[in-house]
Amino acid sequence: MTLVAPTVADCEASADLAALLVRTTKGDAISVPAEQLRLSCKCAHCTRARFDGRFPVAFPGIAITEIGDLGYGLNISFSDGHNRGIYPKPYLLSLAGR
């Protein structure tokens, strides 16, 4: 028997744009808040801002404005103009505690 870890099958922004709604290949439905996604961005810009102590501790009211599926992950754009982050699908599931 081969065990296969679930991965992202489909996703969309919630109606209020405050969360990413994810469906996995195992049929689970997961919601990841937009603020958690923005705080978890690992792009070079955000990594450098953390290193320099310039990264915000919160993004209240942040919204998802666009989602691009790259196959291996999602490129998510936010209402603060940030659009550099790529979230690999296993990383998205780890953010949701899966």
Rank of each mutant, 00 (worst) to 15 (best):
F59S: 10
A9M: 02
K26P: 00
E35D: 12
R48V: 02
P33N: 08
S79T: 03
S77V: 02
R84G: 15
I30S: 11
T47M: 01
F51E: 15
Y72M: 03
G68F: 09
P90F: 02
F78W: 05
A13I: 01
Y72I: 03
R48F: 03
R84I: 01
D10T: 11
G97A: 04
Y91A: 02
T47V: 06
A18D: 06
D28I: 00
I62D: 06
G71N: 02
L20W: 03
T25Y: 07
S77W: 03
A5M: 03
S77H: 13
R38L: 13
V32A: 13
V32D: 13
C43N: 11
F55C: 07
T7G: 10
E35R: 11
I30W: 13
L37T: 14
T25Q: 07
T25P: 06
L17N: 12
Y91T: 02
V8S: 05
R23L: 04
S79F: 00
F51P: 00
E12F: 03
A5P: 00
L70G: 12
H45K: 14
A15E: 11
T47G: 01
P6Y: 02
L92F: 06
T47W: 00
P56W: 04
M1A: 10
P88Y: 02
C41P: 09
P6R: 09
T47F: 00
R23V: 12
R54M: 11
E12I: 00
A58Y: 04
I76T: 13
G71V: 01
P6M: 10
G27N: 10
P90A: 04
G73N: 12
L20Q: 06
T24K: 05
F51C: 06
A15K: 04
S14H: 02
V4W: 02
F78S: 07
A63Y: 02
Y87R: 07
V32N: 13
I30N: 11
A29L: 08
E35K: 10
L70I: 08
G68Y: 09
F55L: 10
G68K: 15
L95K: 05
E66W: 04
